[in-house]
Amino acid sequence: MEKKEAKVVVNHLTKKFGDLLVLDDLNFEVQEGEFLCIVGPTGCGKTTFLNSLTRLYEPTAGDILVNGIPVNPKTQNISYIFQEYSSFPWLTVEQNVRFGLEIKKTPKAEADANVEEMLDIVGLTKFRNYYPSQLSISMLQRVAIARAFATKPELLLMDEPYGQLDIDLRFKLEDELIKLWKKTGTTVLFITHNIEEAVYLSEKIMVLTNKPTSVKTVLDNNLPRPRDVTSPEFVELRNKVTDLIKWW
């Protein structure tokens, strides 16, 4: 009997800021290639959670293992797409996409190929020599997505990347993301406060409680793709998640 090794294992993850307990003993596993959406009430520490996961914040207690070893961005191939616009204004679109590859010292030929591929997928090939100040908001977020995928990460963390986009653009970029995820087989942890978005994207939905944050439950999401936001099954799952998030 062969047990599939979990990609990400989180054991007793706890984070305090002084006396304020933000993350309270989180335990869960994520399988290789899984798309996990993390939802929870506003201000429940979702961002703190991802930042602890990448060691941007040092956790107060607990382990985070990726491929069985403690997480370390220096040796493991992780990418993070932030809530804020994070493209570097001093680099062109192409240079932005190449940034992670340069840090990781990827051989030039491979880096060139990855950059071309990503620019093509997000449709920015024509804008490769533009600077961020010349781009629209949706293009900026695409630059961030292309930059994150260009290093072919084993683990991709996304913190409400589409939170500030209008609904048309969000749908378009969500479909693009699903396409990229299927193509690359990356494990994705996607934080959102938008339940519809979570149901639309995920294979699993993790619901967090209000502060101090812990895992309330994890739901499987086996709706067939492409998903229809108006189908009864979709609405049912959405309502179920909504009920779980209510703390009143």
């Binding site: 961005p73 932030f82 840090i103």
Partner: peptide, 17 residues
């Protein structure tokens, strides 16, 4: 901007980088 430093950090950049 902190987020710019974070981008570098999550890609594994050293302090000098």
């Amino acid at each position: 901007k902190t987020v710019h430093l974070w981008v570098g950090q999550t890609f594994g950049a050293s302090n000098w980088e």
